[in-house]
Amino acid sequence: MNLLVCISKTPDTTSKIAFDASGKKLLEDGVQFILNPYDEWYALVRAIELKEQFGGQVDVIHVGEASSEMIIRKALAIGADAAYRVDMTPAGSWDTASQIAAFAKTRNYDLIFLGKETIDYNGSEVGSMLAGILDLPYIAYASKLTINGQIATLESEIEGGIAVSEVNLPMVLSCAKGMAEQRIPNMMGIMNAKKKPLEVVSPTDVHQHIRLERFELPPAKSSVTMIAPDDIDKLVDIFHSDLKII
């Protein structure tokens, strides 16, 4: 099986977020970047499991600068076979999806895995764009995947519940909780990762449709109003007069 996993880099949730004076750039001082958890825990691990079951190859692709190599090495340490980095700073999801599509077109992947979303932009954009550009079937927020010959059976989130679907390969899917169990890279994996191929790919030209104008921090939260635990009537009044839910 020929498998591709799209991996992204994102600030750890505990990072403090601040922007430069132009309001257009994240200040990276003190921000800890990690491999996006959904890509790592669910997409990558499920791809590796399928390789272990059926044989084949797991490639990872990342669109980003050289400073991202640390997260790429982590993916290799967890068990990916080869990595590709498209050398550009994506201005948005369209860039990312277009670059991955251009790369994937030249190879025959049976499955292309993504995480359900990146925790920095919370967009869930790249997967469906990629499937759209490649004209491949797409399942979003998949929580189970089994393969039988050329047919994938998936469980995924739909409005109001869960769907079970069958799709002929090749396909694109985004992975959510339930897909796999996190794997911690061991010493062997980390050593081997240094020897695995990491190829830098030149980007193709892409037209940008949307433009980031500025970032904005939310207004500071006013401080909490404390209510004495024996003053339950006060709490009832808040539910009624302020929150208006009873």
């Binding site: 999801s93 869930s124 469906s128 764009m129 499937a131 797409y138 399942i139 739909i158 449709h209």
Partner: peptide, 18 residues
């Protein structure tokens, strides 16, 4: 859930931003 699985397909096909 509907939007998450469809919005990007539409943007790609209409060649619009998302």
């Amino acid at each position: 859930s509907t939007g998450k699985s469809t919005a990007g397909l539409v943007a790609a096909k209409l060649n619009k931003g998302l």
